[in-house]
Simulated assay, not measured.
Amino acid sequence: MLRLLVVFLTSFSLSFLLLWGTDGDATPMFGSINSVIYVLGAMFGALSLAFFNYIEGIMKDVPKKLKMKNFELYSLVVNALTDLKREVISNVLLVVVLLVLAFFAGAFGEMEFIQRLSYTSYWTWGVQSLRGACLLSVIVVVCVQLAGFVTANSLRAEVSMYGE
């Protein structure tokens, strides 16, 4: 959770710094973030479903003989896979929250009363930076999920090698 907070705040700060440093000339980069983030979210959802099923398959591959021979090792493998499944579910929920946040930030930034506030450019840049932080955070979550897939693949290889 702390790592996610650091990623989000760093992304927000870098986005705002980019907008401030260019005096708003980088605004078009942030204008179409929703279309990119929705595609990433859809791909991530499909990948997560496949990954969750892959982990289920690995759990079924863990030999039941191992339970009788070495219960501690069996318990360790099953707990690691269960934790990986929980991480997949929490990552999906996180991406959904980031998608909704990016959508509402974009809608909020386009509201008329925001445009009439003093320091409008700073408000607009803050909203756009929030959208940029959501995009970069989703990319980081996707990368973490892919790293989990590599871990699961290595675990499946170990289970297959020493299975029976």
Score class of each variant (00 low, 15 high):
133 A>G: 04
48 S>H: 04
151 T>G: 04
124 T>K: 13
163 G>M: 08
19 L>I: 07
30 F>P: 01
110 E>Q: 15
28 P>V: 03
80 A>Q: 05
17 L>V: 03
5 L>H: 11
66 L>I: 08
112 E>N: 14
78 V>W: 00
156 R>Q: 10
44 F>I: 00
14 L>Q: 04
92 V>R: 12
65 K>E: 07
47 L>N: 02
18 L>Q: 04
18 L>P: 01
27 T>V: 15
159 V>Q: 02
148 G>M: 08
5 L>I: 12
139 I>N: 00
73 L>V: 04
112 E>W: 12
26 A>W: 09
21 G>K: 11
51 F>S: 13
148 G>L: 12
4 L>F: 14
73 L>H: 06
61 D>M: 05
9 L>V: 09
36 V>W: 10
137 S>L: 06
53 N>R: 09
156 R>D: 04
69 K>E: 15
22 T>E: 08
34 N>Y: 03
136 L>Y: 13
111 M>F: 08
102 A>C: 15
162 Y>S: 06
63 P>M: 07
164 E>H: 08
119 Y>Q: 13
91 N>D: 14
126 G>R: 07
41 G>F: 02
118 S>Y: 14
99 L>F: 06
112 E>I: 11
57 G>W: 06
160 S>D: 14
117 L>H: 02
141 V>S: 10
77 V>C: 02
154 S>I: 13
41 G>E: 02
22 T>Y: 11
56 E>N: 08
154 S>T: 09
20 W>N: 05
97 V>W: 12
57 G>M: 06
162 Y>W: 14
88 V>Q: 06
89 I>Y: 14
57 G>T: 07
78 V>R: 01
74 Y>L: 05
62 V>C: 01
29 M>P: 00
26 A>C: 09
143 C>H: 04
123 W>A: 15
75 S>W: 09
129 S>I: 02
134 C>P: 07
158 E>C: 09
12 F>Y: 15
75 S>K: 12
8 F>R: 09
160 S>H: 12
49 L>E: 04
35 S>P: 00
15 S>W: 02
104 F>S: 12
31 G>F: 05
72 E>W: 10
120 T>P: 02
88 V>S: 02
155 L>H: 02
151 T>I: 04
37 I>Y: 02
26 A>T: 05
91 N>E: 07
88 V>G: 01
154 S>L: 14
82 T>C: 03
138 V>W: 06
115 Q>S: 14
27 T>W: 10
136 L>I: 12
121 S>T: 13
115 Q>E: 12
139 I>V: 12
144 V>L: 10
97 V>K: 13
106 G>H: 14
46 A>R: 08
33 I>H: 01
103 F>V: 06
143 C>S: 09
144 V>C: 03
149 F>E: 03
118 S>C: 04
111 M>V: 12
95 V>P: 03
87 E>T: 06
36 V>H: 11
57 G>A: 07
87 E>K: 11
39 V>C: 05
109 G>K: 04
78 V>I: 07
122 Y>R: 05
140 V>P: 00
52 F>L: 10
17 L>A: 12
154 S>R: 15
105 A>K: 00
16 F>Q: 01
42 A>R: 08
40 L>Y: 12
